[in-house]
Computed example of a mutant assay.
Amino acid sequence: MVFTTRAGGASASPYDSFNLGDHVGDDPAAVAKNRARLARAVGLKDVVYMEQLHTNTVTVVDGPQPVAVPATDALVTTRPRLGLAVLVADCTPVLLADATAGVAAAAHAGRMGARNGIVRKTVATMVDLGARPDRIQVLLGPAAAGRNYEVPAAMAADVEAHLPGSRVKTTRGTDGIDVRAGLVRQLLELGVTAIEADPRCTIEDTDFFSHRRDGVTGRQAGLIWLERLETNG
């Protein structure tokens, strides 16, 4: 499991410099260089990306894809050495794996996707492929923290109704959403207990791209893959 920052790439401002998103207006050649560098850095030949639309659609992939998988916000695979990438700039990147069953997943949990059950559906898809909730390990990456994620009161109430545990107060005393907190509670209710959450906030930490902070900006990635299991001949 890997999370990138915005440092060390080929993109120019305002996408400087390790932008991995090909949908934000950056030079396609720079994005291609950055994606190739990421693959080399982790030793993978193939990395699958998504056309993320804040849906709750989960797609199972079993091999390389010539283009981003259309209209999906989670990828699940049982194929070793196939990288699954999720792109974010405040949304929560969620990486999941059951190493015993050989099932891995990457989910894009923005406010709407999290509200509408993208992580719940991802876990269900993993279980369909042989994973068990009590064996699934989850890592939630850097994202907008509740202390800085200010939203209207009605929106906070709506998300809380669908993702309990997500409604918070910001440092200003206004209504906010902590997507990671809501997802941790949801995962625990699903029987997933091996959960780690990176506490860093993309809005306040300039090591990361943040749409809320900067508007036009790049995207960092969460990346997960399965290694081949050793077998004794």
Rank of each mutant, 00 (worst) to 15 (best):
Thr72Tyr: 04
Val94Met: 06
Leu140His: 07
Met1Glu: 11
Val184Met: 12
Arg228Ser: 13
Val86Cys: 09
Ala156Thr: 08
Met50Pro: 07
Arg172Glu: 08
Arg172Met: 11
Ala144Val: 05
Gly25Pro: 01
Asp73Tyr: 04
Thr206Val: 09
Arg167Gly: 09
Ala109Phe: 00
Ala181Glu: 15
Val192His: 01
Gln137Ser: 13
Thr72Leu: 08
Glu230His: 11
Ala153Lys: 10
Ala29Lys: 10
Val67Pro: 02
Ala157Lys: 14
Met155Tyr: 08
Ala131Gly: 09
Met50Leu: 14
Ala131Thr: 12
Val86Gln: 06
Val67Leu: 14
Arg228Asn: 13
Leu129His: 05
Leu95Cys: 11
Pro93Ala: 14
Thr4Val: 05
Gly182Ala: 12
Gly182Asn: 11
Gly215Trp: 14
Leu190Thr: 10
Thr231Leu: 10
Met112Pro: 01
Tyr15Met: 05
Thr125Ile: 00
Arg147Gln: 13
Ala12Glu: 11
Ala41Gln: 01
Thr125Trp: 00
Glu227Trp: 07
Ile224Phe: 03
Thr202Arg: 03
Gly233His: 15
Arg35Cys: 04
Gly25Lys: 02
Glu160Gln: 15
Leu84Lys: 03
Pro70Ile: 10
Gly63Gln: 10
Val88Ser: 04
Gln137Lys: 12
Lys121Ser: 10
Met155Cys: 12
Ser13Met: 04
Leu187Met: 12
Thr206His: 06
Ala29Leu: 14
Leu223Ala: 06
Asp198Met: 08
Arg228Glu: 10
Gly43Lys: 00
Pro70Glu: 12
Ala157Val: 09
Thr5His: 09
Asp16His: 14
Leu44Ser: 07
Ala97Asp: 01
Arg111Gln: 05
Gly215Leu: 14
Val48Ser: 07
Val88Met: 05
Arg167Met: 15
Asp46Gly: 06
Lys33Cys: 08
Arg115Phe: 10
Gln65Arg: 13
Pro28Trp: 08
Gln137Asn: 06
Thr72Lys: 01
Gly113Ser: 15
Ala106Trp: 02
Thr57Ala: 00
Arg167Trp: 11
Arg228Gln: 12
Gln186Pro: 02
Val103Lys: 03
Leu53Asn: 04
Ile195Lys: 06
Ala194Trp: 07
Gln186Trp: 08
Leu140Gly: 04
Gly176Gln: 02
Arg213Gly: 03
Val123Ser: 02
Pro152Gly: 07
Arg147Ser: 12
Val184Ala: 07
Val216Tyr: 08
Arg40Thr: 01
Asn56His: 01
His162Gly: 06
Thr217Phe: 13
Ala131Glu: 06
Thr206Ala: 07
Val42Thr: 00
Met126Thr: 00
Ala85Cys: 15
Ser13Arg: 11
Val24Asn: 07
Asp207Gly: 07
